[in-house]
Simulated scan of single mutants.
Amino acid sequence: MSLKRFLDRADESRRSLLVANRSSPDPILNVLEATFDDQPVRVSERAVPDVETDTVLLVEDGEVLATSPLSALRDTIVTVNSDLYRTGAMGIDDLDMPAVLERLDDVRFTLRGYPKSNTEKLLLVVVSRYIEGIAWQAGHGRHRASFQYLSRIKDERGTRRVYERLAETDVDVHVYGRPDWVPSERFDVTTHVGHDADFRDSWVVLFRPRPPTPDANAPDSPSTDHDPVALLAIETEPHVWEGFWTFDQSLVADLDAYVAREL
């Protein structure tokens, strides 16, 4: 068994990003199209009545699932690069995840990293920061993240700062990777190391909130404001990642259980 088997639980449906009533420059649309080139998400544009200028619609089977300003995608994945996240210029409290990207959950992507593509892998980086931000905002629960090499936490200033901030909360933080760095005792995370395929090839970022303590005096038990969420990507060849993200509670629980048991 390996984490790769979970890829088959992603959705095979196709969704579309429709840029409505565009007035922005052509290069913004061109980069957006390049980001989703050869993916199960088609990018198109057209005039749509009663929709604001420069609005992106996420559509599936004729139904609009979500909308976002084109400027939100521009500022998240079009005119930025992963250095903003690695250096900390874009932190967990800066990222405003566009709804149309969030609702691409359970879609199975194949994304190329540099030097094969300058834009595709950024989508995984953005979703990773989004999940880390959810964990940080919740302030409790369990967070798991794999890095292939643990030294990435140390070497990428933005990543190090994210996990320092997570360690300052009541979140139970677990990190996974090959043992080329040992966090100090002041860095309050649980470290798991290994050399097998799951450690070498996987990219996992997973958060499950802690269930709230029921109030015996309340008519209804309280509920958490944060949903479980996970990203899984497998490096199937150098600089090529296949994966998805999901809010499916059962799937997140199964991923959590597998990582806890096998890594």
Rank of each mutant, 00 (worst) to 15 (best):
P222T: 15
G141H: 04
L122H: 08
A197H: 13
R142S: 11
R74Y: 08
P228K: 05
F6I: 11
M97T: 09
V51K: 02
R161F: 09
D83F: 10
Y163P: 05
T191M: 09
L29V: 13
Y163E: 05
R5Q: 10
P211W: 03
F247V: 06
D188R: 15
E156R: 07
R14K: 15
L123H: 04
H192I: 14
E12C: 09
L123F: 11
S16E: 14
V162R: 00
S23T: 15
G139W: 03
P228V: 14
P115V: 12
I134M: 09
V31K: 08
D61K: 10
N118Y: 11
R152A: 12
V48T: 06
L65C: 07
H226C: 13
N21K: 02
I92M: 06
D50S: 12
T191W: 03
S2H: 09
Y114M: 14
R200N: 11
D11Q: 13
A99R: 08
A99I: 02
W136S: 13
L122C: 10
A135R: 03
V205L: 04
L7E: 07
T159L: 14
G133C: 12
S2Y: 07
D37C: 07
L17E: 01
E12G: 08
A145D: 04
D94W: 00
V100Q: 01
P212R: 12
S184E: 13
D180N: 14
V126F: 02
E63C: 06
D37V: 10
K4P: 02
R165D: 14
D26K: 12
E63A: 11
V162D: 05
R178E: 15
D215W: 07
T79H: 06
T35F: 01
A257Y: 02
P115T: 12
S202V: 15
R261N: 08
Q249I: 04
R129P: 05
L32T: 07
V59T: 05
G177D: 09
V173N: 01
T55S: 01
E156S: 10
G62N: 02
L65W: 03
P222I: 15
G139L: 05
D248V: 04
V229H: 00
G194R: 07
V252T: 06
F247S: 01
D106Y: 05
P209N: 06
A167F: 07
V205Q: 01
R5C: 05
D93T: 15
V175L: 06
D155M: 09
P209M: 09
S23Q: 14
H239A: 14
A257C: 06
H143D: 00
G91K: 03
F36W: 03
F199L: 13
L57D: 00
E185Y: 13
V48G: 00
A138K: 06
A10R: 04
V229N: 04
H174T: 10
A72K: 04
P179R: 06
L101T: 04
W136D: 11
D106L: 08
V19F: 00
L166N: 06
T110K: 04
V107H: 01
H192V: 14
A20T: 12
